[in-house]
Every structure is written in structure tokens, then in C-alpha cells.
């Protein structure tokens, strides 16, 4: 049944990619949510879905025979929490940008990297590189 989930994984990646390329930053947040789940799913699939039994050694025994693959589970457990932190941090950044710039349009958020045309009007030539590093 893994191949069927591989197809679903592909759809999730495509949807996440489509949302990440949005101009509305809130759609980017949704894209990140889907992408995080897709990534975790891919690790889980790569470790195979052979067993329904959790990887717990029965009390009194010293080793486990069979059972679900514990390694991808350990990787995913931290990945879930980290992807939550990533999404939460992104939301904070976007809200901060929204407050400062009054827009949710990713194309309009150009304070750090203004278009060359805009820059030549507003700033002298030499200060351009310094400006980039300040915000980097």
C-alpha cells in the first residue's frame, strides 16, 4: 500500500509548492503546513508500513522481534515539533511585515531588496551593498 501513499505524497508536494509560490503570504503559511506533513509522510513511507504493532519491547523481554520501524518514528517526532516552530515563526515574521508595511503581498515586501529602478531614485549608488547586509 506504500505506492498509493507515494501518489498522495506527490499531490501534497505539488499543492505545497503551488501555495509557496503565492503572492499572498498567508497562503505561503498554508503551503508550509502541508509541506511539513508531506515531509513527515515521506520519512514514514521510506521506513515502510510493514507492521501495525508499536515498537515497544514487551515487559520482561530483552529484544523486539518485528514491530513497526522505530528509526523513522524518532526522526519524525522531532520533525513534527520543528515544523510547528517553523510555521509559527513564519507567521510571526509575516505579521511583523504586515504591521510595518501594511501589505500581505510578497511582491510588495521589498524593503531589503528594492527594485533597481526604485533604488536609483531613492538612494545613492554606493550605499546599496551596505543596505543589503544590514537586513540580511
Amino acid at each position: 500500500m506504500e505506492p498509493v501513499f507515494a501518489l498522495a505524497f506527490g499531490v501534497m508536494v505539488a499543492v505545497a509548492a503551488y501555495l509557496l509560490m503565492s503572492r499572498n503570504v498567508l497562503r505561503i503559511v498554508l503551503g508550509l503546513l502541508v509541506l511539513g506533513n508531506a515531509a513527515n509522510l515521506s520519512i514514514f513511507l521510506a521506513g515502510r508500513l510493514d507492521s501495525r504493532i508499536p515498537p515497544l519491547v514487551p515487559a520482561g523481554e530483552t529484544m523486539l522481534v518485528g514491530g513497526a520501524n522505530p528509526l523513522p518514528q524518532a526522526l519524525i517526532l522531532t520533525a513534527i515539533v520543528i515544523s510547528f516552530a517553523l510555521v509559527a515563526f513564519t507567521v510571526v515574521l509575516f505579521e511583523s511585515a504586515h504591521r510595518r508595511l501594511g501589505t500581505l503581498d510578497a511582491e510588495a515586501m521589498r524593503e531589503a531588496e528594492p527594485r533597481p529602478a526604485e533604488k536609483s531614485v531613492t538612494e545613492p549608488r554606493r550605499s546599496a551593498p551596505a543596505k543589503v547586509t544590514e537586513h540580511a
Binding site: 506527490g10 503551488y18 508531506a38 521510506a46
Partner: peptide, 21 residues
């Protein structure tokens, strides 16, 4: 254009996943 790129990366991801499996 974005849907095109998204489909391309989706197909890539699926093919890689299938190759892994």
C-alpha cells in the same frame, strides 16, 4: 506557470518516492 512548476515538482517527488520504495 506556477501550476506547471508545482506539477513538475509533484511528479519528481512521486517518482523519487516510488524509486525509493
Amino acid at each position: 506557470r506556477d501550476i506547471g512548476i508545482a506539477c513538475l515538482i509533484g511528479v519528481t517527488a512521486t517518482l523519487i518516492m516510488l524509486a525509493v520504495l
